[in-house]
C-alpha cells in the first residue's frame, strides 16, 4: 500500500517523463498497442510480398500440375494424371533418368573425394597467408555465372584446344566433347566438379577445423594411425556437414540448366545431356504448357526430396 502510494506520487511528479518510457515498456496499456501497430506496419511489406510471391505460387503449383493450361490463357482443363503419365512415357524422361545416373557416377564420387581430400589437406596448412590464398582461390569458381564458365569451358574443350589435342593424340581418334553422345557428360561433369569441389571443401573445412586437437592427440597416444583417426574421429565429428555436402552433390543434377543450354544446344546430342530443368524450360517456354511444366518440375522435386531422405537415412545414421 505504501509502495503503491509512493509510485503514484512519483508518477504525478515525473509523469511527463514517464510517458515516453511507457511507450517502450513491457507492461500493458497504450504503449504496447502502439508498438504492435508499428511492428505490423514494419513487417507488412514482407507479409504482402510473401502472400503474392511465395505462399500463392507454392500452394497453386501442386494442383496446377493436374491441369492442362497454357501460359497465355486463363482456361484450365482438369486432366488428372495425364501430364505425369505422358512425361513418363516419353523418350525424354528415359534419357533424363539415364543421364542422371551417368552424370552421378562421374560427378558424385569425384566431387566428394576431391573436396574431402582438399579439406583435410587445407586443415593441415599452418601458414596463414598461404591458407587464405588457397581458400580464396577455391571459392573463385563458385562466383562465376553458368554462362561465363560455359563459354570458357566450351573453348577449353573445343577441337582446337590443347586439352582435346593432347587426348586425341594419345587415343589416336578425333574427340568431339560436345558432339559425341557417349562422352558429352564427361566435360559437363568435370566442369561442375571444377565449380563445386572447392565450395564443398570450404564447407567441410569449417567443420574439420572446429574439432579439438586433443581428440587427435589422444588417439595418437593410443596408437591410432591417420586412417583410423579419419574414420573414427574426423568423419563422425563432421557428419552433419558431410551429409549436407552429399545432399548437394546428389541433387546437383536437378539444377543443371545453363551448361546444356550453352554447350550442347539444349541437351543434345540425341538428348545425351538433357536434364529436368531443360525439359521444364522446354515445356513452359517453347510449348507454353504451364501445367505440363509444373508436372515435370514436381517429378524432379519429389525425386530430389526422396533422394535427400535416403541420404539422411544411409549417411546420417553412421554417427
Amino acid at each position: 500500500m505504501v509502495l503503491e502510494n509512493t509510485i503514484n506520487g512519483l508518477k504525478e511528479k515525473y509523469g511527463k517523463y514517464l510517458k515516453n518510457v511507457a511507450v517502450t515498456g513491457g507492461g500493458k496499456g497504450k504503449g504496447v498497442k502502439k508498438i504492435t501497430l508499428i511492428a505490423w506496419g514494419i513487417i507488412l511489406p514482407y507479409i504482402l510480398w510473401n502472400i503474392v510471391f511465395w505462399i500463392y505460387p507454392n500452394v497453386v503449383s501442386i494442383p496446377i500440375a493436374f491441369f492442362e493450361t497454357s501460359l497465355i490463357s486463363a482456361k484450365a482443363v482438369f486432366v488428372g494424371l495425364d501430364n505425369f503419365l505422358d512425361f513418363f512415357k516419353r523418350e525424354e524422361f528415359r534419357m533424363i533418368m539415364y543421364n542422371m545416373f551417368r552424370f552421378g557416377i562421374i560427378y558424385i564420387p569425384l566431387s566428394l573425394i576431391i573436396s574431402m581430400v582438399l579439406a583435410l589437406m587445407l586443415n593441415s596448412v599452418k601458414n596463414v597467408a598461404l591458407k587464405s590464398f588457397l581458400v580464396i582461390s577455391y571459392f573463385l569458381p563458385n562466383l562465376t555465372a553458368g554462362v561465363a564458365y560455359s563459354v570458357i569451358f566450351q573453348k577449353l574443350f573445343s577441337p582446337h584446344s590443347f586439352i582435346t589435342k593432347t587426348i586425341s593424340s594419345i587415343t589416336g581418334t578425333d574427340i568431339g566433347w560436345f558432339t559425341d553422345a557417349n562422352i558429352v557428360l564427361i566435360p559437363m561433369a568435370i566442369m561442375i566438379v571444377w565449380k563445386s569441389s572447392g565450395y564443398y571443401a570450404l564447407l567441410l573445412l569449417a567443420n574439420i577445423s572446429s574439432i579439438p586437437d586433443s581428440y587427435h592427440e589422444a588417439a595418437v597416444i593410443d596408437g591410432a594411425g591417420p586412417f583410423t583417426r579419419f574414420w573414427k574421429i574426423t568423419l563422425p565429428m563432421i557428419n552433419p556437414t558431410f551429409v549436407i555436402v552429399v545432399i548437394f552433390a546428389v541433387t546437383t543434377f536437378f539444377a543443371i540448366f545453363a551448361e546444356p543450354l550453352m554447350l550442347t544446344g539444349g541437351g543434345g546430342p540425341m538428348l545425351a545431356s538433357y536434364t529436368f530443368r531443360m525439359e521444364t524450360f522446354h515445356q513452359i517456354y517453347d510449348r507454353m504448357a504451364i501445367g505440363y511444366g509444373a508436372a515435370v518440375s514436381l517429378v524432379a522435386g519429389v525425386m530430389s526430396y526422396a533422394l535427400v531422405l535416403l541420404i539422411k537415412k544411409i549417411v546420417g545414421k553412421e554417427v
Partner: peptide, 26 residues
C-alpha cells in the same frame, strides 16, 4: 511470424513456384 520465416528459410518451396510466378507475370 518468426516461426513462419524460419519455416520459409528451411523449406525452400515446392521448386515449382517459379512457374506460377512466371504465369503471373504474363
Amino acid at each position: 511470424i518468426a516461426n513462419f520465416i524460419i519455416f520459409q528459410w528451411i523449406f525452400t518451396g515446392t521448386g515449382v513456384g517459379f512457374i506460377v510466378v512466371f504465369k503471373l507475370m504474363v
